[in-house]
Amino acid sequence: MVVHRSLTRIFAAPLVIAIVSTVGLISALVGDGWWDAVSWVALGLPVLLYLLFIWRRRPN
């Protein structure tokens, strides 16, 4: 029997990613140079995580 996960556990990681994405969306608006770089990393994170999870073909 698999233990059911609580809502807090289900949404912890998505919440962090949403906050990081929001920082990325705003950062490049605020300034240039480093501010842009923060945006690239912060918004690149969801893409990177997607590829990571899909390619990590772990047997069940």
């Binding site: 996960r5 289900i10 912890a12 990590r56 073909r57 772990r58 069940n60």
Partner: peptide
């Protein structure tokens, strides 16, 4: 996602 880890991808299914 009640029974799955975050980022679960069941490649064998």
């Amino acid at each position: 996602m009640r029974k799955l880890r975050f980022g679960a991808y069941r490649a064998q299914r």
